[in-house]
Simulated assay, not measured.
Amino acid sequence: MTTSRAGGVSEPPYDSFNLGDHVGDDPAHVEANRRRLAEKIGLSPERLVWMDQIHGRSVATVDGPVSGPVEATDALVTTQRDLALVVLAADCVPLLLSDDAAGVVAAVHAGRVGARIGIVPRVLDAMVAAGASVSRVEAFLGPAAGGDDYEVPRTMQIDVETHLPGSATRTRRGTPGLDIRAGLRRQLLEAGVAGVAADPRETITDRSLFSHRRGSPTGRHAGVVWMDTTS
């Protein structure tokens, strides 16, 4: 699942369901929003696992609740039920992965930098090590900056396209752009995953979502993946 801006207690410019604790919002508001998220998915707050995201390619496998965010990582993998993995985003791609047959799920922060340096192959390897088969993995790409509006310098576009083919675009203004989700979709399918679904919403233009590019400071929405005890 993915969250939006609506339904929380944070005040502008973090209004209202900000889940990021690193963006300058009142910590009490973030804690209240995180409790609301836990209630929404039917788990206790300690069963949600958060990351200290650094735009890298480190992957952590977790087997139970942790105190505080998992340090310096951009992907989480688990085989434990009723343990929710959370990825925060505000233009970067929140990527959720699952092999239901093996009982392995993952949450990935796949921004431009992490996607370029190979966070997705790393997390697929970690899922396989936990018992998954890539041919059974289903992927979901959450809302993110889209190719029509994600404008970048031409040199950056060329560099990212070299490492993540399929991501280069032309923006609606006719300038060089990037669609990281398109590149990730191609990468996932070429790796052999069973299927890739995507949220059609684009963060830069959709004001129901947070966008760092549209205006900063701002909050963070979340992608959340978990297996319940009845599945």
Rank of each mutant, 00 (worst) to 15 (best):
A110V: 05
D100C: 01
S44I: 07
V49W: 02
T205C: 10
L188F: 03
T61K: 03
S231M: 09
V9T: 14
G64Y: 05
A110C: 14
G192P: 09
A90T: 15
L83I: 08
T218L: 05
H212C: 13
A28D: 15
S16F: 04
G56D: 06
D100A: 15
G215E: 13
A102Y: 00
S10L: 06
T175F: 11
S208K: 10
F140P: 03
A222G: 11
P94Q: 08
H221M: 14
W226A: 10
S133R: 12
A198V: 12
L85A: 02
A84M: 10
K40I: 03
A182P: 05
P121K: 04
G142D: 09
G111F: 05
A101C: 00
S135N: 12
D63K: 02
R172F: 06
D228T: 08
E202Y: 05
H109K: 10
D15K: 14
P176S: 04
E138T: 12
A110R: 02
G219E: 11
N18V: 09
R213N: 14
D179H: 09
R170V: 13
L209A: 07
A75C: 01
P153E: 12
T169E: 13
M227E: 09
G64D: 13
R116C: 07
D15F: 13
H163C: 12
I119E: 00
A168V: 07
D99A: 00
S231T: 13
L178D: 08
L37Y: 09
R181S: 14
T73K: 00
D100W: 01
G166H: 04
R185L: 02
G131S: 06
N33K: 06
A197L: 12
G64L: 08
T171R: 07
A106P: 01
C92V: 10
A139C: 14
P12F: 12
R116Q: 14
A60H: 09
A84Y: 05
R36N: 12
G56M: 02
A197E: 15
D52E: 15
V128E: 14
G20Y: 04
T78S: 12
G183P: 06
P12S: 12
G118C: 04
V120F: 00
A106E: 00
